[in-house]
Amino acid sequence: MSREVFQYGLWFLLFWLMQVLLFREIELRSGWLYVQWFIYPLFVLWLPVRTPGPVVILLSFLLGLLVDVFYHSPGVHASALTGMGFLRSFVLSQLEPREGYQVQGSPTAAQYGLGWFIRYSGILMFLHILFYNISDFFTLYYWKDILLHTLWSFGASMGLILIFSMIFSPRM
């Protein structure tokens, strides 16, 4: 149990630092206006299936807030990731395999198959990025821009997340 906590604590730090030090720099230097690379939501996606709902939401909020510190956008990433943390249990219950989830372990591609993981992460990533862009624009007047930003960033981030989860995966 404590090993698990330690491991996820490390993932938390790693995803946070990767986002704010690496991908934020890439976003700034690439000059692709519409594309944002979201890696940190993978932490929430990877949390063990049995993690209590409130814990997921609280961790999402904290991670989002820490990312916001570096993006100078207090609350924007946090609101989106909190929303995603809240919806995670719902999506998980909808995608539950016939034989159910294992008592221990994370919802990963290795555990439940790549197709399952693409559906799971796809739904939540899209919602997260849409939520993020709505928080960022803070008006539905520019809905076309919101949609465009969301679609581009979704494509880029899904590619990033799938590649990353093929290389790494939380081990029990």
Partner: peptide
Amino acid sequence: SGSVPLFLILEVVCVSLIVRFNSSQ
């Protein structure tokens, strides 16, 4: 499990942060 109230409270916190500290919002 208390997810709903926690989620709502945190979202209120987020939105107030957004409105308070982001100039365009």
